[in-house]
Nucleic acid binder design. Structure first.
Lengths: 206, 206
DNA sequence: GAGTTACAGTGACTTTTGTTACAGATGGTT
DNA sequence: AACCATCTGTAACAAAAGTCACTGTAACTC
């Protein structure tokens, strides 16, 4: 496990080592499901390499992307879910090959007592996720698909540090909670406007 | 201040008294703004009587209802915002005549140290708000207006413990993030179906 | 290189929601 | 009663998104 990637805790070598000590690392391939809806939560994940996307799923199977979890961050839903013995309301999927450090729930209480910076980490993360969720509400409620699509492409490019993405229109449609034809239509329109370049399994931002 | 309404803390008379001691109470009339977007937060509000609605506002002035805060609950956004010296990302309005106990930010840290149940209260609340936000995302992304409208009416009736609401179509439209005519249209349709009964400034669920 | 599968492009149509514009109704005020 | 502001009903239209059906095409398998 690369301790250095726990950058949030750079102020406390002690906590960093403690986390590495009580946690166990696990790797996931791109696209692999890390957490399913309604699964019980027994450990809190901290991403150390790669990234995770967190999706909300409708009863009818429709999905929508909520946010990405980057290295040094944790899935905060699972945190509270874990503490209150709840099941997960969201689904987590590896966006790329990803390494995760799992901290068992029963050890988390102790950490809060012994390491104030751990509590601060959790609060900060909660705050961030909350604001991201507000942004999602905003986007879904008030923005049109073309704008949301462009936004998604930009976020993905930033995450991958690349202007070219390996995605199908179907995948994009899923993350936006819409249909494949809609995405194809909009992408084509964007290509005509010179905003993107399209290929099979490929979208490049210009 | 009615200490009994701090029902979340019924397990700890001590904490309840402490909160009443360091906080200051304030009342708001129905419709009064309690917190504006981008306002700095200097105290954490706990609702003791009445209820608050929390709205998200778009740059273009469009709004959408996020959730209600009922007696014994706090606006959790302001909690984190307050701790991190942030400005509020949401707007809070009194849904009815409301009494609020404000806890100054600088005292909050001490409470966490001294009263474990205070931290638990905060976590629990965060969790609840998070799930409510997820529901909003779900509704806005996947539900049609008629269903969302019916849902809103039901929530409002529950809050007011009444089947008849004093609202204009305009107000409902604002909370749903849509236009008045849309609400009028849908309400009329619902009346034809025998779901509601309409009057001036009045909607009754059947 | 023939076959197969997944992916992308496109047209035609429907549904839902947003927009504009205006008429009528309601309830309070003078 | 006449007036006024506010609220509600409705029609007609536009825009956005969803749905269906089908074609072409790239990449992979055998």
């Amino acid at each position: 496990m690369e301790l250095n990637t726990l950058s949030e805790f750079k102020s406390s070598k002690e906590l960093r080592e403690k986390l590495a000590d009580i946690g166990f690392a696990k790797t996931f391939d791109e696209g692999e499901t890390i957490l399913n809806e309604n699964a019980y939560i027994k450990a809190i994940p901290i991403v150390t390499k790669g990234s995770i996307k967190v999706m909300r799923t409708d009863e009818d199977g429709r999905e929508i992307l909520l946010y990405y979890i980057k290295p040094g961050e944790s899935c905060i839903m699972s945190f509270l879910g874990g503490i209150h013995q709840d099941t997960s309301k969201v689904k987590a999927i590896a966006e790329e090959d990803t390494e995760i450090l799992f901290i068992p729930i029963d050890k988390v209480g102790l950490l809060i007592k012994d390491y104030p910076e751990w509590l601060d980490f959790i609060f900060r993360l909660y705050h961030k996720r909350f604001e991201e969720l507000l942004e999602v509400v905003n986007a879904v409620a008030f923005k049109k698909m073309d704008e949301r699509l462009l936004n998604l492409l930009q976020k993905k490019c930033e995450l991958m540090s690349s202007n070219t993405l390996s995605v199908t229109h179907e995948q994009l449609a899923n993350e936006l909670g819409t249909a494949r034809v809609v995405v194809s239509r909009l992408l084509k329109h964007m290509e005509d406007q010179g905003l993107v370049k399209l290929g099979r399994n490929k979208v490049s931002l210009i």
